[in-house]
Computed example of a mutant assay.
Amino acid sequence: MLKRSFDILSSGVGLLVISPILGMVSIAIAASSKGGIFYRQSRVGLDGKIFNILKFRTMYTGADKQGLLTVGDRDPRVTPTGYYLRKFKLDELPQLFNVFIGEMSMVGPRPEVSKYVDLYAAEDRIVLSIKPGITDYASIYFRNENEILKSSSDPERKYIEDVLPRKLELNKKYIAEMGIWTDIKIIFLTITSIFKKDEDSEVLER
């Protein structure tokens, strides 16, 4: 109950405070490329329920049909405006609506697409026992995920064999530590990590 109250309050206040930013970003997206302002994608949420996650569109229309993973900050499918939205995580801001209506939480395991959830072992499915979040330990640890995948000759295999298992470990770490103060800590680390070049992995390993 406390976590849900925190989510409603923080997302509601957040939407009000950043409404001018949402407006400016919407104008920038509309002016820079053809297509809608928002991008919706089916993700797996609480108890395996499918929902549509909301983001600002950062890729050219139809680009997601070429693959689910984005490789490198300069993936040619990403629009010029989208590059900066991704760099400063502004593309995630519309998910405050997902939080406000109860599909997501401010902090929790990042929701995956069904393709990767189908690869979970039985013990991994514990991450579906809580609401997915806008940010979590894995979001901080893998904030440069696109560049990590770019360095691999087979990004899809790299994600499945190396990145996804580590994300699941960090998701389980969050579940073990879950609480309001943990959420506040993760939100703080998320904000500061956007402006840091060095990874905060030493904090996450504790």
Rank of each mutant, 00 (worst) to 15 (best):
F56Q: 07
A63N: 12
L93V: 14
Q41I: 09
M104V: 02
L68K: 12
F88V: 13
D75S: 00
S32I: 14
V71A: 06
L85S: 09
L46G: 09
G45Q: 02
P76L: 05
Q41E: 01
F88R: 08
V78C: 05
R43T: 07
L93E: 10
G102E: 10
Y84T: 04
T70E: 01
I37T: 01
G48Y: 09
I101G: 06
K65P: 12
I101M: 12
D47E: 12
R57H: 05
K65Y: 09
L96I: 07
M104Y: 02
G102S: 11
R86S: 07
M104I: 00
L93I: 13
N52V: 00
T61A: 10
I101C: 11
A31V: 15
Y60N: 02
R74V: 01
D64N: 14
A63T: 11
T61P: 03
L96V: 13
D47K: 15
D91V: 04
T61M: 06
K87E: 13
S32P: 12
D73A: 15
N98H: 14
L93S: 04
R86E: 11
F97N: 03
T81K: 03
F100W: 14
N98A: 08
L96Q: 08
T79P: 08
D47A: 07
L93C: 11
G82R: 08
T70Y: 02
S33P: 12
F88T: 14
L54C: 08
R74E: 03
S105Q: 00
I37R: 06
S42D: 03
D75C: 04
L93H: 03
I50T: 07
Q41K: 02
F51T: 01
G35C: 06
V71F: 06
F100Y: 15
A31E: 11
G82A: 11
P94T: 06
T70A: 10
T58Q: 12
D73M: 11
K55A: 07
F97S: 00
A30Q: 13
L85R: 02
T58E: 05
G45T: 09
T81S: 08
V99D: 03
R74M: 05
Y39P: 09
F56C: 01
P80M: 12
K49G: 09
L68V: 15
E103I: 07
L68C: 13
S105K: 01
S42E: 11
Y83I: 15
I101Q: 07
D75K: 02
S32D: 15
K55M: 09
K65L: 14
V71T: 14
D91Y: 04
